[in-house]
Amino acid sequence: MSREPESQNAFLRVSGLAKRYVRGGLWRERVVEAVRGVDFEIAAGRTLALVGESGSGKSTVARCVALLEKSDAGQIWIGDTDIASLSLSALLPWRTQVQMVFQDAVTSMNPRFTAAEAVEEPLLIMGKDEALRRETVRSSVNEVGLSVDGIERSVMQFSGGQRQRLAIARALTVRPKLLVLDEALTGLDLSTQGQIANLLLDLQAAHSLTYLLISHDPAVVGRMADVIAVMAGGRIVEMGSTAEMMTAPKHEETIRLLRSARAAQTNLAAITGASL
C-alpha cells in the first residue's frame, strides 16, 4: 500500500490495469490479454461509462474493480489505498465499498432463495444480527421501488425488471460507495430499462453513489454517464465528457460504435413505426 499523489477528488483511480487469462486446451495453453494497461478515474458521485464491443475487455476491468478478479498488473486506488495490492484478508473491509450489479437478472439470484433471502445474503455473509438484517432488507427493498409484502416469494416468481431491482437492493444493503453496473440495463425492454435507469440516477443523487457503467448501448450511456471511455483490444482508445464524445468523436472505434447504435435505432424505428 502506498500513497498516490494525483487527483484529489477522484473516488476511484485505476492505473496501468492489466489482466490476462490462460485458456487451457488439453495439451496446449493459450494466453489471452484481456486488459492491457488501462487508466481512468471517476470523481465521487459521478458516472464513468466503459463502452466497447464484446471482447474489448470492459467486463474484465469491471470484475477487477469489483474485486472479483485479481489483476495481473496496475493499481486500483480508492482514496489513498491501492486495493489491488491488498491481501485477501485485508480486502474484506473494502469489499462492501464496491458492489456489482450484473446483466443477467436470472442468474443474479440464487433460484432456491426467496427475495428476502437473496437481498439479505450479503449481510449474513458479513455476520450482521437479525434485527439489523431485517430492517436493512426492508429499507433497501423500499428504496428500489418494490413492496416488502411480496419478498417472501421465490426470486423465480419475479420478472426480469423486478429481479434487477432486487439485485440493486442487495447491493445497497452493504451501503456501497461505488456500484459497478455490468450491462445492468441490457436485456430489459425499453420501458423497464428507462425505469431502472431513473432508479439508478435517483439512488446516485440520494446516496452520492459513484458508478462504473459497463455498456455497449450509447443511448443508455448518453443518458447516465458523465464521462465515456471507449475500449478496444483491451485498451482505452478514447475518453472524454459525454457531450464531447457523443458530438465530436475522434477515434474510429468510437465513431463506429455510434454509427452502429444509430443504425440500430433506425431499424427499431422502422419496425415500431416510431419517429426518431
Binding site: 485477501l88 474484506l92 458492489q99 442468474t107 432456491r112 445474503e121 455473509i125
Partner: peptide, 27 residues
C-alpha cells in the same frame, strides 16, 4: 460457480464452506 450470485457472494468474502453448502450444492 459461474452464476453471478456466486460471484457476488465471493465478492463479499463468503467462506468456502458457506459457498459450497448454501449456494453451490443445493442448486
Amino acid at each position: 460457480l459461474g452464476a453471478s450470485y456466486v460471484q457476488t457472494a465471493r465478492g463479499l468474502g463468503i467462506s468456502r464452506g458457506r459457498l459450497l453448502f448454501r449456494h453451490v450444492l443445493p442448486v
